[in-house]
Nucleic acid binder design. Sequence first.
DNA 1: CTTTTTCATCAGGAAATTTTCAATAAAAGT
DNA 2: ACTTTTATTGAAAATTTCCTGATGAAAAAG
Lengths: 229, 229
Amino acid sequence: MMENSGITILLVDDEPDILEFLGYNLEKEGYRVLKAKNGQKALKLAKEHKPQLVVLDVMMPVMDGMEACTEMRKVPELAGTLIAFLTARGEDYSQITGFEAGADDYITKPIKPKLFISRIQALLRRYKAVPEDSNIIAVKGFIIDKNRYVVVKDDVEITLARKEFELIQFLVSRTDKVVTREEIFTHVWGENVVVGDRTIDVHIRRIREKLGIDSIRTIKGVGYKFEEG
Amino acid sequence: MMENSGITILLVDDEPDILEFLGYNLEKEGYRVLKAKNGQKALKLAKEHKPQLVVLDVMMPVMDGMEACTEMRKVPELAGTLIAFLTARGEDYSQITGFEAGADDYITKPIKPKLFISRIQALLRRYKAVPEDSNIIAVKGFIIDKNRYVVVKDDVEITLARKEFELIQFLVSRTDKVVTREEIFTHVWGENVVVGDRTIDVHIRRIREKLGIDSIRTIKGVGYKFEEG
DNA sequence: CTTTTTCATCAGGAAATTTTCAATAAAAGT
DNA sequence: ACTTTTATTGAAAATTTCCTGATGAAAAAG
Protein backbone atom coordinates (compact mmCIF):
# COMPACT_ATOMS: atom_id res chain seq x y z
CA MET A 1 0.00 0.00 0.00
CA MET A 2 2.65 2.48 1.06
CA GLU A 3 5.09 1.76 -1.66
CA ASN A 4 2.74 2.98 -4.33
CA SER A 5 3.52 6.49 -3.21
CA GLY A 6 6.45 6.59 -5.59
CA ILE A 7 4.29 5.94 -8.59
CA THR A 8 2.68 8.70 -10.58
CA ILE A 9 -0.32 8.14 -12.79
CA LEU A 10 -1.67 10.68 -15.22
CA LEU A 11 -5.39 10.55 -15.88
CA VAL A 12 -6.73 12.17 -19.02
CA ASP A 13 -10.43 12.58 -19.67
CA ASP A 14 -12.68 15.43 -20.60
CA GLU A 15 -15.32 14.46 -18.10
CA PRO A 16 -14.47 15.86 -14.66
CA ASP A 17 -16.57 13.17 -13.00
CA ILE A 18 -14.46 10.41 -14.40
CA LEU A 19 -11.26 12.16 -13.42
CA GLU A 20 -12.58 12.60 -9.93
CA PHE A 21 -13.78 9.06 -9.63
CA LEU A 22 -10.69 7.34 -10.96
CA GLY A 23 -8.40 9.75 -9.19
CA TYR A 24 -10.03 9.07 -5.88
CA ASN A 25 -9.68 5.33 -6.29
CA LEU A 26 -6.07 5.51 -7.31
CA GLU A 27 -5.14 7.89 -4.51
CA LYS A 28 -6.78 5.58 -2.06
CA GLU A 29 -4.26 2.99 -3.17
CA GLY A 30 -1.43 5.37 -2.54
CA TYR A 31 -0.62 6.43 -6.06
CA ARG A 32 0.24 9.99 -6.90
CA VAL A 33 -2.35 11.20 -9.38
CA LEU A 34 -2.24 13.93 -11.99
CA LYS A 35 -5.24 14.97 -14.01
CA ALA A 36 -5.68 16.57 -17.39
CA LYS A 37 -8.83 17.27 -19.29
CA ASN A 38 -7.46 17.10 -22.79
CA GLY A 39 -4.57 15.71 -24.75
CA GLN A 40 -2.68 18.96 -24.95
CA LYS A 41 -2.57 19.49 -21.23
CA ALA A 42 -1.79 15.84 -20.77
CA LEU A 43 1.23 16.10 -22.98
CA LYS A 44 2.52 19.07 -21.04
CA LEU A 45 2.00 17.39 -17.69
CA ALA A 46 3.56 14.19 -18.93
CA LYS A 47 6.71 15.98 -19.99
CA GLU A 48 6.92 17.75 -16.67
CA HIS A 49 6.29 14.86 -14.34
CA LYS A 50 7.12 11.78 -16.35
CA PRO A 51 4.44 9.57 -14.92
CA GLN A 52 4.87 5.83 -15.01
CA LEU A 53 1.43 5.37 -16.48
CA VAL A 54 -0.99 7.46 -18.51
CA VAL A 55 -4.65 6.51 -18.66
CA LEU A 56 -6.05 8.14 -21.72
CA ASP A 57 -9.62 8.53 -22.86
CA VAL A 58 -9.87 7.85 -26.55
CA MET A 59 -12.60 10.39 -27.23
CA MET A 60 -11.68 13.90 -26.25
CA PRO A 61 -11.88 17.42 -27.59
CA VAL A 62 -8.83 19.49 -28.51
CA MET A 63 -6.52 16.52 -28.85
CA ASP A 64 -7.95 13.08 -28.72
CA GLY A 65 -6.43 10.10 -27.04
CA MET A 66 -4.78 8.56 -30.04
CA GLU A 67 -3.23 11.77 -31.14
CA ALA A 68 -1.95 12.37 -27.64
CA CYS A 69 -0.58 8.86 -27.56
CA THR A 70 1.23 9.35 -30.83
CA GLU A 71 2.69 12.61 -29.60
CA MET A 72 3.83 11.12 -26.35
CA ARG A 73 5.55 8.30 -28.11
CA LYS A 74 7.59 10.84 -29.98
CA VAL A 75 9.01 12.29 -26.80
CA PRO A 76 12.16 10.41 -25.86
CA GLU A 77 11.84 11.01 -22.14
CA LEU A 78 8.49 9.30 -22.20
CA ALA A 79 9.75 6.26 -23.99
CA GLY A 80 9.23 4.07 -20.99
CA THR A 81 5.82 5.37 -20.07
CA LEU A 82 2.90 3.00 -20.09
CA ILE A 83 -0.22 4.12 -21.88
CA ALA A 84 -3.64 2.61 -21.33
CA PHE A 85 -6.68 3.57 -23.34
CA LEU A 86 -10.07 4.18 -21.91
CA THR A 87 -12.85 3.32 -24.30
CA ALA A 88 -16.58 3.49 -23.91
CA ARG A 89 -18.32 0.15 -24.10
CA GLY A 90 -19.44 -0.63 -27.57
CA GLU A 91 -17.30 2.04 -29.10
CA ASP A 92 -16.05 1.25 -32.53
CA TYR A 93 -12.60 -0.22 -32.20
CA SER A 94 -11.60 0.75 -35.68
CA GLN A 95 -10.99 4.22 -34.38
CA ILE A 96 -8.53 2.86 -31.96
CA THR A 97 -5.68 2.63 -34.35
CA GLY A 98 -3.82 3.88 -31.34
CA PHE A 99 -2.49 0.50 -30.51
CA GLU A 100 -0.15 0.85 -33.38
CA ALA A 101 0.98 4.04 -31.74
CA GLY A 102 2.04 1.91 -28.82
CA ALA A 103 -0.69 1.68 -26.23
CA ASP A 104 -0.19 -1.05 -23.68
CA ASP A 105 -3.69 -1.84 -22.54
CA TYR A 106 -7.31 -0.96 -23.04
CA ILE A 107 -9.90 -0.48 -20.35
CA THR A 108 -13.60 -0.30 -21.00
CA LYS A 109 -16.06 2.13 -19.49
CA PRO A 110 -18.11 1.91 -17.41
CA ILE A 111 -15.43 1.19 -14.89
CA LYS A 112 -15.61 -0.89 -11.77
CA PRO A 113 -13.11 0.49 -9.27
CA LYS A 114 -11.76 -2.83 -8.10
CA LEU A 115 -11.22 -4.15 -11.56
CA PHE A 116 -9.71 -0.89 -12.64
CA ILE A 117 -7.20 -0.93 -9.82
CA SER A 118 -6.20 -4.50 -10.38
CA ARG A 119 -5.77 -3.84 -14.05
CA ILE A 120 -3.51 -0.93 -13.29
CA GLN A 121 -1.53 -2.96 -10.83
CA ALA A 122 -1.10 -5.82 -13.22
CA LEU A 123 0.07 -3.43 -15.89
CA LEU A 124 2.64 -1.78 -13.65
CA ARG A 125 3.80 -5.10 -12.34
CA ARG A 126 4.16 -6.65 -15.71
CA TYR A 127 5.95 -3.67 -17.04
CA LYS A 128 8.44 -3.70 -14.22
CA ALA A 129 9.22 -7.28 -14.96
CA VAL A 130 9.67 -6.84 -18.67
CA PRO A 131 9.08 -3.69 -20.64
CA GLU A 132 7.50 -5.07 -23.73
CA ASP A 133 6.37 -3.70 -27.01
CA SER A 134 2.72 -3.33 -27.68
CA ASN A 135 1.23 -6.57 -28.86
CA ILE A 136 -2.23 -5.29 -29.41
CA ILE A 137 -3.85 -4.84 -32.78
CA ALA A 138 -7.22 -3.16 -33.15
CA VAL A 139 -9.33 -3.44 -36.26
CA LYS A 140 -12.93 -2.85 -37.01
CA GLY A 141 -15.05 -5.00 -34.80
CA PHE A 142 -12.42 -6.43 -32.52
CA ILE A 143 -9.05 -6.33 -30.84
CA ILE A 144 -6.37 -8.93 -31.21
CA ASP A 145 -4.39 -9.14 -28.03
CA LYS A 146 -1.30 -11.24 -28.43
CA ASN A 147 -0.32 -10.82 -24.82
CA ARG A 148 -3.47 -12.35 -23.48
CA TYR A 149 -3.89 -14.58 -26.50
CA VAL A 150 -7.50 -13.56 -26.95
CA VAL A 151 -9.65 -11.64 -29.34
CA VAL A 152 -11.93 -9.07 -27.75
CA LYS A 153 -15.21 -8.51 -29.49
CA ASP A 154 -18.02 -6.41 -28.11
CA ASP A 155 -16.13 -6.31 -24.84
CA VAL A 156 -16.10 -10.06 -24.61
CA GLU A 157 -12.94 -12.09 -24.62
CA ILE A 158 -13.03 -14.84 -27.19
CA THR A 159 -10.50 -17.58 -26.97
CA LEU A 160 -9.23 -18.97 -30.23
CA ALA A 161 -7.19 -22.11 -30.58
CA ARG A 162 -3.60 -21.69 -31.60
CA LYS A 163 -3.94 -22.19 -35.35
CA GLU A 164 -7.06 -20.08 -35.46
CA PHE A 165 -5.33 -17.31 -33.61
CA GLU A 166 -2.30 -17.36 -35.85
CA LEU A 167 -4.46 -17.45 -38.93
CA ILE A 168 -6.62 -14.47 -38.03
CA GLN A 169 -3.50 -12.66 -36.99
CA PHE A 170 -1.95 -13.26 -40.37
CA LEU A 171 -5.07 -12.20 -42.23
CA VAL A 172 -5.36 -9.04 -40.21
CA SER A 173 -1.71 -8.23 -40.74
CA ARG A 174 -2.54 -8.15 -44.45
CA THR A 175 -5.78 -6.26 -44.08
CA ASP A 176 -7.53 -5.55 -47.37
CA LYS A 177 -5.05 -7.65 -49.27
CA VAL A 178 -5.79 -11.04 -50.68
CA VAL A 179 -3.68 -13.79 -49.24
CA THR A 180 -3.31 -16.98 -51.19
CA ARG A 181 -3.55 -20.40 -49.70
CA GLU A 182 0.12 -20.81 -50.37
CA GLU A 183 0.92 -17.78 -48.30
CA ILE A 184 -1.27 -18.95 -45.51
CA PHE A 185 0.40 -22.31 -45.48
CA THR A 186 3.89 -20.96 -45.37
CA HIS A 187 3.09 -18.39 -42.73
CA VAL A 188 0.89 -20.38 -40.42
CA TRP A 189 2.02 -23.92 -41.02
CA GLY A 190 5.55 -23.45 -42.27
CA GLU A 191 7.29 -24.35 -45.48
CA ASN A 192 7.62 -28.05 -45.20
CA VAL A 193 4.47 -29.01 -43.39
CA VAL A 194 1.98 -30.72 -45.63
CA VAL A 195 -1.64 -30.86 -44.69
CA GLY A 196 -4.72 -31.49 -46.74
CA ASP A 197 -6.27 -28.86 -48.92
CA ARG A 198 -9.42 -28.39 -46.92
CA THR A 199 -7.67 -27.67 -43.68
CA ILE A 200 -7.51 -23.95 -44.17
CA ASP A 201 -11.19 -23.79 -45.03
CA VAL A 202 -12.13 -25.46 -41.81
CA HIS A 203 -10.09 -23.07 -39.76
CA ILE A 204 -11.55 -20.13 -41.59
CA ARG A 205 -14.97 -21.44 -40.80
CA ARG A 206 -14.20 -21.71 -37.11
CA ILE A 207 -12.92 -18.18 -37.03
CA ARG A 208 -16.01 -16.94 -38.80
CA GLU A 209 -18.16 -18.79 -36.31
CA LYS A 210 -16.42 -17.39 -33.32
CA LEU A 211 -16.00 -13.82 -34.48
CA GLY A 212 -19.03 -13.32 -36.72
CA ILE A 213 -19.06 -14.11 -40.37
CA ASP A 214 -18.17 -10.86 -42.07
CA SER A 215 -14.72 -9.41 -42.44
CA ILE A 216 -13.21 -12.53 -43.95
CA ARG A 217 -14.05 -12.62 -47.62
CA THR A 218 -13.51 -15.60 -49.88
CA ILE A 219 -11.81 -14.91 -53.18
CA LYS A 220 -12.59 -18.02 -55.09
CA GLY A 221 -9.66 -19.69 -56.71
CA VAL A 222 -7.23 -17.35 -55.02
CA GLY A 223 -7.51 -17.15 -51.28
CA TYR A 224 -9.01 -15.05 -48.52
CA LYS A 225 -9.08 -11.42 -47.61
CA PHE A 226 -9.70 -9.64 -44.34
CA GLU A 227 -11.65 -6.49 -44.93
CA GLU A 228 -11.86 -3.47 -42.73
CA GLY A 229 -14.81 -1.17 -43.29
CA MET B 1 5.12 2.88 19.72
CA MET B 2 2.16 0.76 18.87
CA GLU B 3 3.23 -0.16 15.41
CA ASN B 4 6.34 -1.86 16.68
CA SER B 5 4.18 -4.66 17.95
CA GLY B 6 4.25 -6.28 14.54
CA ILE B 7 8.00 -6.44 14.48
CA THR B 8 9.91 -9.43 15.74
CA ILE B 9 13.54 -9.23 16.77
CA LEU B 10 15.68 -12.24 17.51
CA LEU B 11 18.48 -11.74 20.01
CA VAL B 12 21.34 -14.18 20.03
CA ASP B 13 24.00 -14.16 22.71
CA ASP B 14 25.49 -16.71 25.04
CA GLU B 15 25.38 -14.40 28.02
CA PRO B 16 21.95 -14.51 29.65
CA ASP B 17 22.49 -11.08 31.17
CA ILE B 18 22.87 -9.45 27.80
CA LEU B 19 19.81 -11.24 26.44
CA GLU B 20 17.84 -10.08 29.42
CA PHE B 21 19.08 -6.54 29.22
CA LEU B 22 18.59 -6.01 25.50
CA GLY B 23 15.32 -7.90 25.50
CA TYR B 24 13.92 -5.73 28.21
CA ASN B 25 14.80 -2.56 26.37
CA LEU B 26 13.37 -3.73 23.11
CA GLU B 27 10.17 -4.98 24.65
CA LYS B 28 9.75 -1.64 26.35
CA GLU B 29 9.64 -0.19 22.83
CA GLY B 30 6.93 -2.58 21.81
CA TYR B 31 8.95 -5.05 19.81
CA ARG B 32 8.33 -8.73 20.01
CA VAL B 33 11.54 -10.35 21.21
CA LEU B 34 12.89 -13.85 20.79
CA LYS B 35 16.04 -15.07 22.48
CA ALA B 36 18.55 -17.74 21.65
CA LYS B 37 21.79 -18.57 23.37
CA ASN B 38 23.67 -19.98 20.42
CA GLY B 39 23.71 -19.94 16.66
CA GLN B 40 22.03 -23.27 16.24
CA LYS B 41 19.03 -22.37 18.29
CA ALA B 42 18.95 -19.02 16.60
CA LEU B 43 18.70 -20.64 13.18
CA LYS B 44 15.84 -22.79 14.32
CA LEU B 45 13.93 -19.89 15.82
CA ALA B 46 14.59 -17.74 12.78
CA LYS B 47 13.09 -20.30 10.47
CA GLU B 48 10.08 -20.69 12.69
CA HIS B 49 9.28 -17.06 13.32
CA LYS B 50 10.91 -15.22 10.46
CA PRO B 51 11.96 -12.17 12.46
CA GLN B 52 12.58 -8.89 10.72
CA LEU B 53 15.87 -8.47 12.50
CA VAL B 54 18.43 -10.73 14.10
CA VAL B 55 20.97 -9.31 16.52
CA LEU B 56 23.82 -11.74 16.62
CA ASP B 57 26.77 -11.95 18.96
CA VAL B 58 29.91 -12.68 17.04
CA MET B 59 31.55 -14.77 19.75
CA MET B 60 29.51 -17.72 20.78
CA PRO B 61 29.96 -21.40 21.52
CA VAL B 62 28.40 -24.14 19.38
CA MET B 63 27.88 -21.96 16.34
CA ASP B 64 29.36 -18.51 16.24
CA GLY B 65 27.73 -15.42 14.83
CA MET B 66 29.35 -15.44 11.45
CA GLU B 67 28.61 -19.05 10.85
CA ALA B 68 25.01 -18.53 11.88
CA CYS B 69 24.80 -15.57 9.55
CA THR B 70 26.08 -17.59 6.64
CA GLU B 71 23.58 -20.31 7.34
CA MET B 72 20.71 -17.89 7.59
CA ARG B 73 21.58 -16.32 4.29
CA LYS B 74 21.23 -19.69 2.70
CA VAL B 75 17.62 -20.02 3.74
CA PRO B 76 15.35 -18.49 1.12
CA GLU B 77 12.62 -17.57 3.57
CA LEU B 78 15.10 -15.45 5.45
CA ALA B 79 16.33 -13.59 2.42
CA GLY B 80 14.84 -10.33 3.59
CA THR B 81 15.91 -10.61 7.20
CA LEU B 82 18.19 -7.98 8.63
CA ILE B 83 21.22 -9.17 10.55
CA ALA B 84 23.18 -7.02 12.96
CA PHE B 85 26.42 -8.14 14.63
CA LEU B 86 27.20 -7.57 18.23
CA THR B 87 30.88 -7.26 18.94
CA ALA B 88 32.74 -6.58 22.16
CA ARG B 89 34.73 -3.41 22.11
CA GLY B 90 38.35 -4.12 21.43
CA GLU B 91 37.51 -7.48 20.01
CA ASP B 92 39.57 -8.57 17.12
CA TYR B 93 37.89 -7.03 14.11
CA SER B 94 40.09 -8.84 11.68
CA GLN B 95 37.74 -11.78 11.67
CA ILE B 96 34.80 -9.64 10.90
CA THR B 97 36.28 -7.30 8.36
CA GLY B 98 36.87 -10.04 5.88
CA PHE B 99 33.38 -11.18 6.34
CA GLU B 100 31.05 -9.84 3.71
CA ALA B 101 28.29 -12.37 3.92
CA GLY B 102 25.53 -9.93 4.42
CA ALA B 103 25.43 -8.37 7.84
CA ASP B 104 23.53 -5.12 7.88
CA ASP B 105 25.01 -3.42 10.91
CA TYR B 106 27.60 -3.72 13.66
CA ILE B 107 26.87 -2.80 17.22
CA THR B 108 29.57 -2.57 19.84
CA LYS B 109 29.40 -3.72 23.42
CA PRO B 110 29.14 -2.36 26.00
CA ILE B 111 25.74 -1.16 24.99
CA LYS B 112 23.92 1.97 25.97
CA PRO B 113 20.18 1.30 25.78
CA LYS B 114 19.23 4.54 24.09
CA LEU B 115 21.87 4.26 21.44
CA PHE B 116 21.05 0.63 20.91
CA ILE B 117 17.37 1.34 20.37
CA SER B 118 17.98 4.18 17.95
CA ARG B 119 20.39 2.03 16.05
CA ILE B 120 17.77 -0.70 15.75
CA GLN B 121 15.16 1.79 14.69
CA ALA B 122 17.37 3.24 12.01
CA LEU B 123 18.05 -0.19 10.70
CA LEU B 124 14.38 -1.11 10.55
CA ARG B 125 13.53 2.21 9.02
CA ARG B 126 16.04 1.70 6.30
CA TYR B 127 14.64 -1.70 5.66
CA LYS B 128 11.09 -0.43 5.52
CA ALA B 129 12.03 2.47 3.29
CA VAL B 130 13.36 0.14 0.67
CA PRO B 131 10.90 -2.69 0.47
CA GLU B 132 13.07 -4.05 -2.32
CA ASP B 133 10.81 -3.30 -5.23
CA SER B 134 7.63 -4.19 -3.51
CA ASN B 135 8.31 -7.65 -2.36
CA ILE B 136 4.73 -8.25 -1.53
CA ILE B 137 2.38 -8.82 -4.39
CA ALA B 138 -1.32 -8.91 -3.74
CA VAL B 139 -3.51 -10.41 -6.39
CA LYS B 140 -7.01 -11.65 -6.39
CA GLY B 141 -7.32 -14.49 -3.99
CA PHE B 142 -3.93 -14.38 -2.36
CA ILE B 143 -0.78 -12.57 -1.40
CA ILE B 144 2.70 -13.48 -2.49
CA ASP B 145 5.31 -12.48 0.03
CA LYS B 146 8.75 -12.70 -1.49
CA ASN B 147 10.39 -11.58 1.71
CA ARG B 148 9.18 -14.49 3.69
CA TYR B 149 8.72 -16.84 0.79
CA VAL B 150 5.11 -17.63 1.56
CA VAL B 151 1.73 -17.31 -0.05
CA VAL B 152 -1.14 -16.17 2.10
CA LYS B 153 -4.61 -17.28 1.14
CA ASP B 154 -7.69 -16.62 3.21
CA ASP B 155 -5.43 -15.56 6.06
CA VAL B 156 -3.65 -18.89 5.97
CA GLU B 157 -0.01 -19.22 5.13
CA ILE B 158 0.51 -21.75 2.43
CA THR B 159 3.96 -23.15 1.99
CA LEU B 160 5.04 -23.70 -1.54
CA ALA B 161 8.20 -25.49 -2.44
CA ARG B 162 10.87 -23.36 -3.97
CA LYS B 163 10.18 -24.19 -7.61
CA GLU B 164 6.47 -23.82 -7.07
CA PHE B 165 6.99 -20.46 -5.48
CA GLU B 166 9.22 -19.19 -8.22
CA LEU B 167 6.83 -20.41 -10.83
CA ILE B 168 3.73 -18.76 -9.40
CA GLN B 169 5.76 -15.65 -8.83
CA PHE B 170 6.77 -15.58 -12.45
CA LEU B 171 3.25 -16.17 -13.66
CA VAL B 172 1.89 -13.44 -11.44
CA SER B 173 4.57 -11.02 -12.53
CA ARG B 174 3.11 -11.41 -15.99
CA THR B 175 -0.51 -11.33 -14.95
CA ASP B 176 -2.92 -11.66 -17.84
CA LYS B 177 -0.09 -12.38 -20.20
CA VAL B 178 0.54 -15.75 -21.71
CA VAL B 179 3.93 -17.13 -20.82
CA THR B 180 5.36 -19.86 -22.97
CA ARG B 181 7.05 -22.93 -21.65
CA GLU B 182 10.27 -21.56 -22.99
CA GLU B 183 9.91 -18.45 -20.93
CA ILE B 184 9.07 -20.44 -17.87
CA PHE B 185 12.10 -22.61 -18.31
CA THR B 186 14.53 -19.79 -18.74
CA HIS B 187 13.11 -17.79 -15.86
CA VAL B 188 12.54 -20.52 -13.33
CA TRP B 189 15.09 -23.13 -14.29
CA GLY B 190 17.66 -21.07 -16.13
CA GLU B 191 18.99 -21.07 -19.66
CA ASN B 192 21.08 -24.14 -19.67
CA VAL B 193 19.17 -26.43 -17.39
CA VAL B 194 17.38 -29.15 -19.24
CA VAL B 195 14.50 -30.93 -17.66
CA GLY B 196 11.75 -33.02 -19.13
CA ASP B 197 8.78 -31.56 -20.87
CA ARG B 198 6.18 -32.62 -18.33
CA THR B 199 7.97 -31.07 -15.42
CA ILE B 200 6.25 -27.75 -15.73
CA ASP B 201 2.86 -29.40 -15.88
CA VAL B 202 3.44 -31.19 -12.66
CA HIS B 203 4.47 -28.04 -10.86
CA ILE B 204 1.50 -26.20 -12.25
CA ARG B 205 -0.71 -28.93 -10.95
CA ARG B 206 0.76 -28.68 -7.48
CA ILE B 207 0.22 -24.96 -7.44
CA ARG B 208 -3.34 -25.38 -8.56
CA GLU B 209 -3.89 -27.93 -5.83
CA LYS B 210 -2.50 -25.72 -3.15
CA LEU B 211 -3.99 -22.42 -4.21
CA GLY B 212 -7.24 -23.45 -5.83
CA ILE B 213 -7.63 -24.39 -9.42
CA ASP B 214 -8.70 -21.21 -11.16
CA SER B 215 -6.46 -18.29 -11.97
CA ILE B 216 -3.97 -20.36 -13.91
CA ARG B 217 -5.29 -20.97 -17.35
CA THR B 218 -3.64 -23.25 -19.85
CA ILE B 219 -3.43 -22.07 -23.41
CA LYS B 220 -2.92 -25.27 -25.27
CA GLY B 221 0.07 -25.30 -27.51
CA VAL B 222 1.21 -21.95 -26.21
CA GLY B 223 1.70 -21.85 -22.47
CA TYR B 224 0.01 -20.72 -19.28
CA LYS B 225 -1.62 -17.54 -18.15
CA PHE B 226 -2.36 -16.20 -14.72
CA GLU B 227 -5.66 -14.34 -14.72
CA GLU B 228 -6.86 -11.79 -12.26
CA GLY B 229 -10.55 -11.05 -12.00
C1' DC C 1 21.52 -41.95 10.20
C1' DT C 2 16.57 -41.70 9.49
C1' DT C 3 12.67 -39.32 8.03
C1' DT C 4 10.57 -35.99 5.33
C1' DT C 5 10.21 -33.05 1.54
C1' DT C 6 11.20 -31.69 -2.95
C1' DC C 7 11.77 -32.58 -7.58
C1' DA C 8 12.02 -34.81 -12.04
C1' DT C 9 10.22 -38.47 -14.97
C1' DC C 10 7.21 -41.69 -16.82
C1' DA C 11 3.07 -43.80 -18.62
C1' DG C 12 -1.94 -44.03 -19.16
C1' DG C 13 -5.78 -41.57 -20.01
C1' DA C 14 -8.45 -37.27 -20.77
C1' DA C 15 -9.23 -33.27 -23.32
C1' DA C 16 -8.68 -30.18 -26.74
C1' DT C 17 -6.94 -29.19 -31.16
C1' DT C 18 -6.19 -30.19 -35.81
C1' DT C 19 -6.96 -32.76 -39.81
C1' DT C 20 -9.54 -35.52 -42.86
C1' DC C 21 -13.57 -36.94 -45.28
C1' DA C 22 -17.84 -36.81 -47.61
C1' DA C 23 -21.85 -34.45 -48.80
C1' DT C 24 -23.52 -30.19 -50.27
C1' DA C 25 -23.47 -25.51 -51.95
C1' DA C 26 -21.79 -21.85 -54.70
C1' DA C 27 -19.18 -19.80 -58.46
C1' DA C 28 -16.96 -19.98 -62.84
C1' DG C 29 -16.42 -21.78 -67.37
C1' DT C 30 -18.30 -23.55 -71.62
C1' DA D 1 -28.48 -24.73 -68.69
C1' DC D 2 -25.00 -27.89 -67.84
C1' DT D 3 -20.54 -29.09 -66.32
C1' DT D 4 -16.59 -28.28 -63.74
C1' DT D 5 -14.21 -26.33 -60.34
C1' DT D 6 -13.83 -24.64 -55.86
C1' DA D 7 -15.55 -23.59 -51.20
C1' DT D 8 -18.60 -24.55 -47.10
C1' DT D 9 -20.25 -27.46 -43.67
C1' DG D 10 -21.01 -31.20 -40.30
C1' DA D 11 -19.23 -35.02 -38.29
C1' DA D 12 -15.69 -38.04 -37.10
C1' DA D 13 -10.92 -39.58 -37.01
C1' DA D 14 -6.26 -38.55 -35.92
C1' DT D 15 -3.12 -36.20 -33.49
C1' DT D 16 -1.27 -33.20 -30.25
C1' DT D 17 -1.05 -31.55 -25.85
C1' DC D 18 -1.97 -31.73 -21.19
C1' DC D 19 -3.40 -33.75 -16.69
C1' DT D 20 -2.78 -37.12 -13.22
C1' DG D 21 -1.01 -40.55 -10.03
C1' DA D 22 2.82 -43.21 -9.07
C1' DT D 23 7.80 -43.83 -8.50
C1' DG D 24 12.43 -43.08 -7.21
C1' DA D 25 16.34 -40.14 -6.56
C1' DA D 26 18.17 -36.27 -4.41
C1' DA D 27 18.12 -32.82 -1.06
C1' DA D 28 16.79 -31.01 3.27
C1' DA D 29 15.22 -31.56 7.91
C1' DG D 30 15.35 -33.81 12.17
